[in-house]
């Protein structure tokens, strides 16, 4: 027979779980609110055009080299691997098809977004987080300026514009990487490679390839700003928030990628 202590102990555990669930809901609410405000504030004065341009520049410049490297090497490796594998089935000539379809549909958006989450997202969390723990966010509010509008909205729109562009650049670099390998070690002619690439890609691929970075961009921006605004506990807290920001963004990117892919396949 369980005694009263047994019930009390379970009651404590249940209470703790309810407490955790409440915290989760509070975070979810804060997160959705930040997402909503980031969009709404874009349409109200002042517009902070200068801040947006500065952010777009810094996001683009900060990420361009690493996006080029990541996508370029991915294209090279994919062509190499698939070239030798597909030769077994006599399909070596169609390396271009495989490389371009996987890049445009999947790897381009996902890899570019992961790189941007690691580089730009972490930077945003660290910056807003340290402003938060040193009372700079309070100072901004005290000076009559809304920090969500000034900091989050501007970064939101900047990433949402830049990430699809970076993704397109990444896709092109990867496909070019595939070309280099096809011509140099697989004996495929450049015109043939381009023909297989152009034949393979459909409108749906381009659509999927652009919807994804668009959604991922909003995710990265909201997650990294949210982690920054909620960072507490000094420099250590900012470090933890930065790590959390990259982890949460990455997981959400993979999860949303799955959902979007499933959705696109089901409608087409």
């Amino acid at each position: 027979m369980p005694d009263s202590e047994y019930y009390l102990k379970n009651w404590d555990i249940l209470k703790k779980q309810l407490e955790d669930f409440k915290k989760f809901l509070i975070h979810l609410h804060g997160f959705s609110e930040l997402f909503g405000h980031s969009i709404v504030y874009l349409f109200t004065r002042p517009f902070y055009l200068r801040d947006i341009l500065v952010q777009m520049h810094s996001i683009g410049v900060r990420s361009l080299v690493i996006v080029l490297l990541t996508a370029g090497f991915t294209g090279l490796v994919m062509a190499l691997q698939s070239g030798y594998e597909m030769a077994v089935y006599g399909a070596k000539m169609y390396v271009g098809t495989l490389v371009s379809v996987s890049l445009v549909r999947e790897l381009g958006p996902v890899l570019t977004s992961l790189v941007v989450a690691g580089r730009v997202g972490a930077g945003i969390t660290a910056e807003i987080g340290s402003m938060n723990v040193t009372e700079q966010i309070d100072a901004m509010r005290a000076l009559g300026t809304n920090p969500v509008k000034k900091l989050a909205s501007t970064r939101f729109i900047a990433i949402t514009i830049m990430l699809p562009i970076l993704t397109i650049i990444g896709d092109a670099t990867g496909i070019f990487g595939g070309l280099v390998i096809s011509v140099s070690s697989l004996g495929i002619s450049a015109p043939f490679y381009w023909m297989t690439v152009l034949r393979a890609l459909t409108l749906n691929d381009f659509l999927a390839g652009l919807i994804k970075p668009f959604v991922f961009a909003m995710t990265i921006s909201t997650v990294s700003c949210y982690m920054g605004f909620t960072a507490k506990g000094g420099t250590k807290g900012v470090g933890e928030a930065t790590t959390r920001s990259v982890v949460v963004s990455s997981i959400l990117i993979f999860f949303l990628d799955f959902l979007i892919t499933k959705f696109i396949l089901s409608v087409s």
Binding site: E127, S130, M131, T134, E135, Q136, D138, A139, M140, R141, A142, L143, G144, T145, N146
Partner: peptide, 19 residues
Amino acid sequence: FSIRQKFGMLFQGSALFDS
């Protein structure tokens, strides 16, 4: 936000924008 514009606040830790 408009009410805050009536105030000037000197924060204990200065809270200057470091960037």
